[in-house]
């Protein structure tokens, strides 16, 4: 952990949007973490938690309003415009909806080749060749090259999007809900493909999703976001099996796990209420309004982001002392192990 330079890091990162003269939406607020080379870092959160904005900030699609994003220890915003253009080729993103990501009037080959056209580092023939190789690598046969997006299924379109980012040989790919729009059998296919590509090209993934099953499957470490802040971060096994933050606990409990009734041992925690407005988050701990353990302290003082166990961070005054009852993983683990 100490020897390796993080490939992507954030230091008290904030991304704020001014909505009107007096209201500022802090979509991402004082977030710090490191992503190491070759790992898959999962970010879980519900809609409105700021996970997509965070993902965009990581690949310089959103400028930080506070704090820093560091790429291999360097601030990309300190680079000149030209340098930045070149630099960001290394940091790519795959979005949720492949329909919106592909130009309906471009052939598949042209869509896949487009990043190379923009980069303009090689002659046309070579660009075509690299694009065809990328398509082959994601399992699209050469006869897809002349087709248009509407002729492809959702899973195939997502493969096109993956092929397209591969052409630039990035070291980091941010996957923002990249499999959320797909049916489970196709989702499994794409997850397998992403795992293969990671092994082959030594890729680092930042996997943003609301699906705990997906995040648990693919990630080495996960971070949990709530209203713009991280509430918990650690090794996937540790976070899923022994959550320290009551929000993580509730998320795990709410996840509908496909198990017969007699194997579901855990009691479910059903959160009351919904996500408060991120424009005026609650004082102190932002989760306190929905937390069943909330006390006066939680409203008065914001909990610190601290390393409760080695490598396992949480922002809760009572982290580690709360009875975490609900994780459905306990039940499953006993049965599967």
């Amino acid at each position: 952990m100490t020897a390796q330079q993080p490939l992507v890091a954030t230091r008290d990162l904030g991304v704020h949007f001014r909505l009107s003269r007096n209201t500022v939406l802090k979509a991402v607020d004082r977030v710090s973490f490191d992503v190491l080379p070759g790992e898959t870092f999962g970010i879980i959160g519900e809609s409105g938690s700021g996970k997509t904005t965070l993902g965009r900030a990581l690949v310089c699609l959103e400028a930080p309003s506070a704090g820093q994003v560091l790429h291999q220890g360097r601030d990309p915003y300190a680079l000149s415009r030209r340098q930045l253009r070149q630099h960001r080729r290394n940091y790519q993103v795959v979005f949720q909806d492949p329909n919106a990501a592909l130009d309906p009037r471009m052939t598949i080959l042209r869509s896949v080749r487009e990043p190379l056209d923009v980069a303009a580092t090689m002659p046309r023939a070579q660009r075509d060749e690299v694009a065809m190789q990328a398509m082959e690598r994601v399992g699209l046969s050469p006869d897809f090259a002349a087709r248009y997006p509407h002729e492809l299924s959702g899973g195939q379109k997502q493969r096109v999007c993956i092929a397209r980012v591969l052409t630039l040989r990035p070291s980091v790919i941010v996957c923002d809900e990249a499999v959320a729009a797909l049916d489970v059998s196709i989702q499994a296919d794409i997850l397998n493909l992403l795992a293969d590509l990671q092994r082959e090209f030594g890729l680092t993934y930042i996997f943003i999703t609301h699906n705990l099953g997906v995040v648990g499957h693919i990630s080495d470490r996960v971070a949990v976001m709530y209203l713009g802040r991280l509430v918990e971060m650690g090794e996937t096994e540790a976070v899923l099996a022994r959550p320290l933050h009551p929000y993580t606990d509730a998320l795990l409990s709410a996840e509908p796990v496909a198990l017969p009734s007699h194997m579901r041992t855990s009691q479910r925690v059903i959160l009351s209420g919904e996500l408060p407005s991120p424009v005026s988050p609650p004082s102190g701990c932002r989760f306190r309004t929905r937390c069943r353990f909330a006390q006066d302290l939680c409203a008065a003082k914001e909990p610190e982001w601290s390393e409760v166990e080695p490598g396992h961070w949480a922002a809760c005054h009572f982290a580690g002392t709360l009875p975490v009852t609900s994780s459905p993983v306990h039940g499953v683990a006993e049965v599967v192990a």
């Binding site: 489970v184 059998s185 989702q187 499994a188 296919d189 997850l191 397998n192 795992a195 699906n211 705990l212 099953g213 997906v214 648990g216 499957h217 693919i218 996937t236 096994e237 899923l240 795990l252 996840e255 796990v257 496909a258 459905p328 993983v329 499953v332 683990a333 599967v336 192990a337």
Partner: peptide
């Protein structure tokens, strides 16, 4: 094909 919370990194 459902990714399970416990079967990490296994091929789906």
């Amino acid at each position: 094909s459902l990714p399970a919370l416990t079967q990490r990194k296994a091929r789906l």
